[in-house]
Design a binder for these strands. Structure first.
Lengths: 352, 352
DNA sequence: ATTAACAATGACAACGCTGTCAATAGAAAC
DNA sequence: GTTTCTATTGACAGCGTTGTCATTGTTAAT
């Protein structure tokens, strides 16, 4: 039933080593031989045994994904992207949820990396922003990619995928401006998260570009929670000069703001436009649905995994020039829905 | 740096086989020897190499988790539970998201099971309710556990963890009754999901137990969506004799119902009580927060993985009596929050 | 024509662990 | 005291793959 490299070799009439060569795309194999082997592989439905491949100490075909993030939706997207890439490139993935605040987090990561003989690690925010964690991995001499909000100006010599929150925030703000708004407020997320700053910067940049002077009253500190959005909106709507639009730092905040505003009798979007950020399920679980910005998390994760695998391969083949830094830009997508759009067909809401 | 079983054996002054015995908790090892080995393991910070363990064809220490579920929150909980158990018992986990509607799903599962040399599979709903998938796994002669809504009356001879949605629904309904309600409506989820029926049964049972005659008007078909909740509530509140409480089949529906009710000017919970189901993040993202029922998904998953591992171990040791069927009951937890509770301190809402 | 160089392939060991079976030692039975 | 049993331990092969190095055949250089 289960075929091994030996079976393939026999069928193809070559040695197991040659089969191995074909599998691993090494050079020095005749095209003819390659074809014969490929045919045999197909016929026997042969799958290399991962355990055996990993055993030969030198290299491994297992990646790790370490995360600490309360947002299940984000993680699942991430994970599925990484898995897709791993699958395609013949790697396995070990997933490791953890708690950044835990004392022995460093040991834990080290221990898992060792136990599973990882070839590399994919690290998502906020872990990817934690210097101690990065230092620990560096020390293990393990390859890794980080996914981080920001732009590549700031950054050192390790593979990274940058998520351009700032651009996305700019786009959203711009959209609000184009809808005719000039009194646009901003409700922020947790200050420790780099993303909050990024998004605020995008907001400011858009205002500036359109020569709208911003009011400090309109910038509200908050957290990434529903309550924070509700409170923020209540405060904003109690101002002398109310804003006509609110850009919320994520969808949860926006959902809270929307709820509070509607309860206070505001018509959305007629009297107040509200935009979120992230394209989480929350943005579709409101009435009306929220305009938001989507980062292609799945693709970002996939790209990150791809980068990592290539990096590992380069390292393996002792390439003199390992291209250590790789920049990757992802265009965020603006999802315009009913919460900001005045005219249009989408008024019939409710039935999707 | 990285120590192997040989290093441990040397340090402990025993053979590698003995170390192996201690690691795998086989019998026939003196307590004294065990201690010596354990000490050496600790001193060297030894971790068995998983790849090598898996290599010896006969058994593997890798489990698989196959899922197809749109609910990210549920999957993450599930996954973390399984991972915790795997970690504790020295197993690894390969995660495989998939699409049940895909044509070649069966082949896909077979292929992954083979490639990763899985020792067993954990299957969650709705895949765990799909006969073809189960048949395929059966054919692979692979151990597996299923997690399914229902009770053990119905079921065959494979390890299962049953999630008693009915009991939980009963509890919620009972809670509403105890709050003084008699006009209690029900908004259901998708009909294809077994859980919808289970929850409806619980609702009916509670009404019956308290001798409340139910009105067919009060039972609304729906889907597991926010919109469905909003529409359902609107209809219910348009009835001649309005219900004073609504039990929604999950939290998304409840969030929709809550939103619609508040917009129509109803005070929650004073004029209308609303309860959800699942304890998803949605239940905390409303104003007021939703009463709901929590299934301990994490623990359920953990238990399932534990069951599977034990089952595999039994099979391995050629135990004459493999206990094939295992029933496991989990007590759902009632989370009473502001959306149903009239009196009480929790009125101060909003600030958690 | 002879040699050197290179491209393509194969033989074989090794990776770290567990299964099998043999060896030892002490206890129990004769 | 000798034999049998049992509990504890160890020696060694082998899992499926890749790395190393040797071998073959072919082409280019002399």
């Amino acid at each position: 039933m289960k075929s091994t490299i030996t079976d393939v070799a026999k069928l193809a009439g070559v040695s197991i080593k040659t089969v191995s060569r074909v599998i691993n795309r090494e050079d020095s194999v005749t095209e003819d031989t390659q074809n014969r082997v490929a045919a045999a592989v197909k016929q026997l439905n042969y799958q290399p045994n991962q355990a055996a491949r990993n055993l030969k100490g030198t290299n491994s075909y297992t990646l790790g994904f370490v995360y600490d993030n309360p947002n299940a939706y984000y993680i699942i997207q991430m994970q599925e992207g990484i898995l897709a890439e791993c699958h395609e490139r013949g790697y396995e993935l070990i997933i490791h949820p953890c708690n950044a605040k835990q004392v022995d987090i460093i040991d834990e990561i080290k221990s898992m990396a060792k136990r599973s003989q990882l070839a590399g690690l994919v690290i998502s925010p906020p872990l990817s922003e934690t210097p101690e964690v990065l230092a620990a991995i560096e020390e293990l001499n393990l390859s890794y990619v980080r996914i981080i909000p920001g732009s590549h100006d700031s950054v050192e010599s390790t593979p990274c995928v940058f998520v351009h929150d700032q651009d996305a925030a700019y786009k959203i703000t711009e959209h609000l401006i184009q809808q005719g708004h000039t009194d646009i407020a901003f409700i922020g997320g947790d200050k420790e998260h780099r993303s909050t700053d990024e998004r605020l910067n995008g907001y400011m940049a858009a205002l500036k570009a359109y020569q709208i002077t911003f009011k400090t009253d309109y910038i509200i500190d908050g957290q990434y929670t529903f309550d924070s959005g509700a409170t923020g909106a209540k405060n904003l709507l109690g101002l002398e000069q109310k804003p006509t639009a609110i850009f919320c730092c994520n969808d949860e905040i926006a959902a809270g703001a929307l709820f509070a505003a509607r309860l206070s009798g505001f018509q959305i979007p007629q009297q107040l436009a509200i935009a979120g950020f992230e394209d989480s399920p929350f943005s579709r679980q409101t009435l009306p649905q929220l305009t938001t910005a989507a980062q292609p998390t799945n693709m970002i994760a996939r790209k990150a995994a791809g980068l990592l695998i290539s990096h590992i391969a380069a390292k393996r083949s002792k390439a003199k020039t390992i291209q250590t830094t790789v920049h990757q830009h992802f265009e965020p997508q603006l999802l315009i829905r009913e919460s900001t759009q005045l005219n249009s067909q989408s008024a019939k809401s409710s039935k999707n």
